[in-house]
Computed example of a mutant assay.
Amino acid sequence: MTITNVYSPTFEQLESMSLTLLETIIDTLLELMKVCMNNIPDCQWLGQWQELAKRIVYGCISKTTSDGEIKALLRILVKTLESFFDIDLIDSVIMCLTRLLSLLSSESKIHKFMSWIALSILQLEETQLYASDLSLLEENLHILGYMLNLFENTNTHQQQTLERIMMDARKPLE
């Protein structure tokens, strides 16, 4: 028995896969790998796979991060924005930053600057970047809110306001 109506995407269709779909595929693959690793003692291949795939799916596979890694991603973002050649690369860096923010130490000063970075990207008016950039902004606001108790109603006199935090973070960026 031969099946003639099998879907086979063309190279162009594969190349234009959305980053959100790629992220979902990578998350599913990672869950599958975790399940398999539980049954294999002394499994080393996840670490090797992570190292090989780091450039492509860094935000998906990372379970820790540092200020240095975030700054390296920001340098990539700046260089990509300078040429504005590859929107997908810009989008993927934003998605990666979004996922890594929650892994970044709460003492990191980067959290206070990330909202301005997200707002600056929104000002580019590139519709392809809106979804990922709004996710970055939302994640950053959640983290700031949690870290600094910004959205709690208790002791409002002792708390910093979001406006004050944002304006203080803006000064060095100007």
Rank of each mutant, 00 (worst) to 15 (best):
E125Y: 15
I110D: 01
W116V: 01
V57M: 07
S8D: 08
S83N: 11
C36W: 04
I94Y: 03
S115T: 03
E107L: 06
E15G: 04
L122A: 01
H142N: 14
G145I: 02
V6G: 01
C43W: 09
E69Q: 13
G47S: 12
I87V: 15
R99Y: 01
T65L: 07
N149C: 07
L30M: 14
L137Y: 08
L14M: 13
F11K: 03
L89K: 13
Y58P: 02
L22Q: 11
L30V: 14
I110Q: 02
L32K: 09
F84Y: 09
H142D: 10
N140D: 08
L29D: 09
E152S: 13
L101V: 08
T65H: 06
S132H: 03
I110L: 13
L21P: 00
N39H: 12
C43G: 06
M37R: 14
T80R: 03
L46F: 08
M37G: 07
I56K: 01
T28A: 14
L73Y: 05
R55T: 13
D88A: 10
E31N: 14
C60L: 02
I143Y: 02
L162G: 07
V93P: 15
Q158W: 01
A131S: 13
D86L: 10
A53Y: 05
E107C: 03
C60F: 00
S18A: 13
T24P: 00
Y146D: 14
I117F: 11
S16A: 13
V35S: 10
S102E: 14
C36L: 15
W45C: 12
M95D: 06
P41W: 05
H142Q: 09
T10E: 04
W116S: 11
S92D: 07
L134T: 10
A131K: 05
C96W: 02
G47H: 06
T10I: 04
M147Y: 09
P172R: 06
F85T: 11
L46I: 12
N153C: 10
T154R: 12
R99M: 06
F85R: 14
L81D: 02
L134M: 15
L81T: 06
S108C: 12
Q123D: 15
N5S: 10
I40W: 03
T80I: 00
V35G: 01
